[in-house]
Amino acid sequence: MDFLTVLISRANYWAYIILMMIGLYAMIAKNNLVKKIVGMSIFQTAVILFYVSIGAKQGATIPILLHGHAPETGGNLAHAATGHGTAAVQAVNYINPLPHVLMLTAIVVGVATLGVALALAIKVYKEYGTLEENEINQRLRRG
């Protein structure tokens, strides 16, 4: 496999790594607390992107069964006619639903963390009158 194929066939992983590093950098190196919170959000979103991209399957559709059974084509018709509509469902035709479920949870956790982080930032602002870390540290040193 040459370099370009690897680059293209795994574009999802490169995208998530880049996003994750942007978020991590913002969390570590930024001075402003709200920018750090934004970085945290990007950081969590990167993982969500990673998981959702695991679920993808080539040639498959969204994981919702139309009318409760597989599309009626050729060989599947026989099953549908006998009343076992579910027997015709082929896993290859539908993308993996599990990562989507997991990421619904992770999105909710991300929102919750964001809410608490913003609440804390408001408290910090009330206390020190600024959100810049170096100014807060100066104020702390002065007592």
Partner: peptide, 14 residues
């Protein structure tokens, strides 16, 4: 994917 209808009768697997 294959058992959702038989187990829960919900077409949306997610």
């Amino acid at each position: 994917i294959e058992h959702t209808m038989a187990d829960t009768s919900v077409p949306n697997i997610v």
